[in-house]
């Protein structure tokens, strides 16, 4: 028996499957995105803030929201970074290739930002305030990955 051997127990193939309910507000958004490439946000009846992704409750006003408004598809970069270190995606167990752009888009008409990838073919054009448009996936399945990324258009 080696005194210097540190015993490690590994989780191996253990994983936890989940079926997360999206909720009706989110379901409407994902279905519009999938079927019509439209971004549907929701507007607070009290403070008039336009939220994306849509959700049931305005946290600030504590009221239920049901007025859907179309926003985008174009917008501006609210803020961003360029990721240069790789990590394992816990959902797939695979590393995403780096570098890639990651940012928060202010879709035209929305008051909150939409998180997604940003195309960085020309890094010099990636800046706060740059105009962007979505690049849709060819096959859309009703997730936020129906958008591949946002690309700079000015």
């Amino acid at each position: 028996m080696s005194d210097t051997e540190h015993v490690i127990i590994e989780s191996g193939a253990a994983r936890q499957p989940f079926n997360y309910a999206v909720g009706l507000h989110g379901s409407r958004f994902l279905q519009e995105l999938r079927d019509h490439r439209r971004f549907m946000a929701v507007k607070c009846p009290r403070c008039a803030k336009v939220y994306i992704p849509p959700r049931r409750v305005c946290g600030a006003c504590f009221v239920e929201m049901d007025e859907f408004v179309e926003v985008g598809p174009q917008g501006t970069i609210g803020t961003f970074t360029i990721l240069r270190y790789a990590f394992i995606d816990p959902e797939t167990g695979v590393q995403k290739p780096v570098p890639y752009g990651y940012g928060f888009i202010r879709l035209d008409g929305a008051d909150t930002l939409f998180q997604h990838y940003i195309d960085i073919q020309d890094e010099s054009r990636v800046k706060i305030g740059a105009r962007v448009e979505p690049v849709f996936a060819d096959e859309r399945k009703g997730t936020v990955k129906d958008i591949r990324c946002f690309r700079i258009i000015d």
């Binding site: 997360y20 309910a21 999206v22 909720g23 009706l24 989110g26 959700r55 049931r56 409750v57 239920e64």
Partner: peptide, 12 residues
């Protein structure tokens, strides 16, 4: 199975 409801829906 409350398939229509996320956690926030139930809490609300």
């Amino acid at each position: 199975n409350k398939i229509r409801d996320g956690f926030a829906d139930m809490v609300w």
